[in-house]
Nucleic acid binder design. Structure first.
Lengths: 192, 192
DNA sequence: CAATAAATTGTCAAGTATGATAATTTATTA
DNA sequence: TAATAAATTATCATACTTGACAATTTATTG
């Protein structure tokens, strides 16, 4: 019998290192050499486990979106019955939830995906799921609201969320966060 | 006397080509070779006119933000007296204004700027100016509104605007645009 | 026309990222 | 212990990108 495969562990190791390098050096600077060093592995092991550079980035994107979906669902699961939407806002706009690390990883991967139709489609569908999931929570919070209003509010909250995340990643110092939360609450008032 | 300098024309040529290559090949793929080919110039002329790669990207960012400021001011100048804010919304969210080209250029340049503190600061201050300029227009449209409300609405409209732009650049097919406009109008209602 | 200074061209060297492959080691099971 | 198949290591060749510099051409002015 063969030696047991470490592929899944090694893959995670490599993708973790990939994320760190994307954050630290950007898409251009995230070379296989640096990733291998970060992971504490020989560069040849990258090829052995996750294929070439494009394969690696694709795997990174897959894992990122899957994880993000899970995290969002987990967050939904912890929302209280009353004040559901307000708490959702607070959590979404809390920098602890969407940290600068994830933002920069997403930006790098999105940038990479932009001119690869299949990867790009993955980013788009992930965004759509995000909006839909928020709209679904709004339905739970405001059962009597109109679906079109919920779509509008969900789209806006998502937009605010991503803008806030980008600006935080760039190091914006102003209170965009407070404004975003205030705006989000006003939007929720549309549904009440 | 010397031969007349073509530096400004050549620089524009090169930065135009840079933008095209950023859109077409991304930050990584925008090599000096491709840019030179796109501009119809020898690669050495890039160095001669705009310095090394970082110098070129910095010039590209400077020009982009300056142009964007001008365009926004020009747009403000054409707004009517009545229904000022509503028309502003319509124009901002019109894909003809913020086209996919500009979006991808901005994303590439922002990505490049992310780990260069001075360039990053430029992006941040540009964003701040954008929000402030929108808030200023809201003051013209709603003289009796509260400043904090105007800030909130301006922040949100900007967030929607950038999200919409990103999604359009990724090729999102859904009617995020309509939702954004609808949400923007609701936000304006806050100020009336 | 001569002088000037810039544009333009041509070429080279160095560094680096990547892909590929062979050789070796290791852990498991029969 | 032998066989198996995977992990791991070592190494090479190739292509690509960039930076640098010398040589040449060109347009303007005195």
């Amino acid at each position: 019998m063969p030696r047991p495969s470490l592929k899944s562990e090694r893959t995670d190791q490599i993708l973790d290192a990939l994320e760190i390098c994307l954050v630290r050096y950007g898409l251009e600077g995230a070379t296989q050499e640096r990733i291998a060093a970060q992971a504490g592995l020989a560069r040849a092991l990258i090829r052995h486990n996750v294929g070439n550079r494009d394969d690696m980035l694709r795997l990174g994107l897959d894992r990122f979106t899957a994880r993000s979906d899970e995290q969002l669902q987990a967050l939904f699961g912890e929302l209280p019955e009353t004040g559901r939407a307000e708490v959702l806002l607070d959590w979404l706009f809390d920098p602890r939830f969407f940290d600068a690390h994830s933002v920069r990883v997403l930006e790098s991967l999105s940038h990479w995906a932009a001119d690869r139709s299949d990867a790009r489609a993955l980013v788009v569908s992930w965004t759509e799921r995000f909006i839909d999931a928020v709209a679904e929570q709004l339905l739970l919070a405001f059962p009597n609201s109109k679906a079109s209003d919920r779509d509008t509010v969900a789209t806006c909250i998502t937009g605010l969320y991503f803008q806030l995340a980008s600006l935080l990643a760039l190091g914006l110092t102003r209170s965009v966060q407070q404004r975003s939360v205030a705006a989000g609450r006003r939007l929720l008032a549309m549904l009440a």
